[in-house]
């Protein structure tokens, strides 16, 4: 074997950019802007609006939109815009804490379960039970036990997300575990913990990141639905769902009451969904 005709710099047959940078363009950008606008409104908005979300204003019962009250006032004489902006904070708080907590617990349980077959079957059946409930039925059931309130919305979101993330990570781990680079690490003599930490988990996390964005939108939706049903954020605390519930009672007086919370919810959910879609496209799925 004498022939060496490999060029010193062999051509790279696959021209690869570092990573398809599609995320920050198109859908991903729109999603980020939509979510960003809502987050900004929640953070800065309450400082700009002169009204207190809890203050009952004299002679301002169910006023329509006007210069002083851009979205009008509600049945208890409170400024709707002020309540809406304060409500955004509550929703974001729920999304950005409950979803990661649920994801963390779900991923830990899902990953641990793959270690042992018996444990795996047990955990899978438990997830089956949780997933068998429609989300709102589960929400009503849990709220019946722990009572309504912001914290119960969070608990519900955590419970809904645990099996979702558990399943997702388990499937990804099982797939990656069959990859040849895992065998390559085993043949070197690497310990299970090393293989899991350096090879299996980093290559399994992509779908989890996508699901995070998707679950944020689910959390917003759950909060809205629970509050409208009267088992979510409890009065007088504002939230998107709470503002909507008040508005729904007076739709015949002025349909515009519902416009604020509906638009904000729609923008937030759409934004999260677009981010998830773009993230999914960026990972080449």
């Amino acid at each position: 074997m004498t022939a060496v005709l490999e060029d010193p710099v062999e051509p790279v047959e696959v021209a690869v950019p570092a990573r398809p940078r599609v995320f920050a363009r198109g859908k991903g950008l729109i999603g980020l802007v939509l979510v960003g606008v809502v987050v900004l409104a929640g953070l800065v908005g309450p400082l700009l609006v002169p009204w207190d979300p809890y203050a009952q204003l004299p002679d301002a019962n169910l006023l329509g939109p006007s210069g002083a009250h851009l979205l009008g006032t509600d049945d208890l004489n409170r400024d709707v815009l002020a309540r809406l902006l304060a409500g955004i904070r509550v929703d974001l708080l729920i999304s950005f804490t409950a979803v990661p907590v649920g994801a963390l617990i779900g991923c830990a349980v899902g990953a641990l379960a793959t270690v042992n077959n018996v444990l795996d079957v047990a955990v899978q059946r438990l997830f089956d039970v949780l997933l068998a409930f429609p989300q709102l039925i589960l929400a009503i059931g849990l709220a019946a036990v722990i009572g309504p309130g912001t914290s119960s919305v969070m608990v519900v979101v955590v419970f809904i997300e645990i099996p979702v993330f558990g399943r997702l990570l388990r499937a990804a781990v099982l797939k990656v575990r069959e990859a040849q680079y895992v065998t390559a690490a085993e043949v070197v003599g690497a310990r299970k913990a090393h293989v899991l930490r350096t090879h299996v988990l980093p290559n399994s996390l992509e779908p989890v990141l996508v699901q995070l964005a998707l679950s944020m939108s689910v959390a917003v939706f759950i909060e809205g639905a629970m509050s409208v049903l009267g088992i979510g954020v409890s009065p007088p605390e504002p939230s998107l769902g709470a503002v909507l519930k008040t508005a729904l009672g007076y739709l015949d007086l002025n349909p515009l009451f519902a416009a604020g919370p509906l638009v904000v919810t729609a923008v937030l959910v759409l934004g999260f969904q677009l981010i998830a879609q773009a993230a999914n496209a960026a990972r080449g799925a």
Partner: peptide
Amino acid sequence: FQDAGGSLNPRMTVADCVGEPLRV
């Protein structure tokens, strides 16, 4: 391995792949 591409962790650099046995 036969499939060199598949036997290398796509998230690691070439140096990390080569040095893994030394680290382990």
